[in-house]
Design a protein around this nucleic acid. Sequence first.
DNA 1: TGTATTTGACCCAA
DNA 2: TTGGGTCAAATACA
Length: 339
Amino acid sequence: MLPENLSAVVQQLLRGQDSAKKLRDLLTVVSSVDQKKPHMKEEVDGAGGDRSPPPLAAKDLLGDIFQSLTSTISILNKGSFEEASQVPPGGGGLFSNSVKSEESEESSKCSTARGRRGCYRRRKISDSWTTLSSSLVDDGQQWRKYGQKAILNTSFPRSYFRCTHQLDQGCPAKKQVQMTSENPPVFRTIYTGKHTCRSLLKPSHIILADPRVPGDTSILLNFETGQSTDNNSNTTTATRARIRGGKTRGFSCSSAPSAAVKCEAREEAIANYVNVSCNNLWSSSSEYEGFPSPDYTLLESAIGSDQGDVLSSNQSLEVNMDLSIDGFDFEEMLAHTFS
DNA sequence: TGTATTTGACCCAA
DNA sequence: TTGGGTCAAATACA
């Protein structure tokens, strides 16, 4: 990212933060007045009295926040920073103007006789989105590798994955993973197609939410202990951790009791956007052989949480990078802004 | 034996 | 013509 763009992004985010604070203060004042003297509300609204009116009406503040964030997205969308957008299809809402390729149709096999290997129609513009990460990120899906290809002018091969349920459920989701640089390692993942596979698990069983939220009824997966933590202590953890040996491929946890643990959260969980914190070191998978074992951290910040309820994907912002750009802490900023 | 990965070959789009 | 996406046989492993 260009320095001037970074500066502009920070400026826009700070502006949004400031507006959010003002709005919060405004709403706090209105709320307190409502509780004490309902008739004082008009004073707060600037209709009279000796209390000075707020500098901006709530509507204006909201508009300013929205404009600020929209500008930020716009900046991020400029140039080559399509990877700044982490919003998958359907993840619109506040960030609906972020990068997403409009699609033609999924790659379709030609109708000629079977046995013609590689007979397909290359998709021109796919329903795709790109993520960048400094570490290998387990997106919670089940992927099956079906190819690997050396790409021109790149040091590392590109790996091709499709949803495990492509055959049994016809799920069209695919992804490509490629390491784009060595120091620091950057993993570019291109997702194409939406998951249509159905989960055996209910999303609520594997919603991983912020444990800091009091009364949060969701489940925190604690990879450090290899167990899951239910914030209510009475819910069954349904996240599957499939332990495999031998030629296990995929993300594997180096601290698991067995050779590997493959986390297999389901599509709905991702669609609803969950917060995942996995601080273990993850041993490299074969498709990433030669890649350094990452310090695995995945954070998906959700905006618009309805008190811990399942988040709608169109209200969420996925940030599965390190949430920092040159020392700027987006996580902290977002926490402040949306607290 | 079943499942997943590897890898060379095939074929299309640019 | 060639890079890239996919296929499918071969292979590995439990």
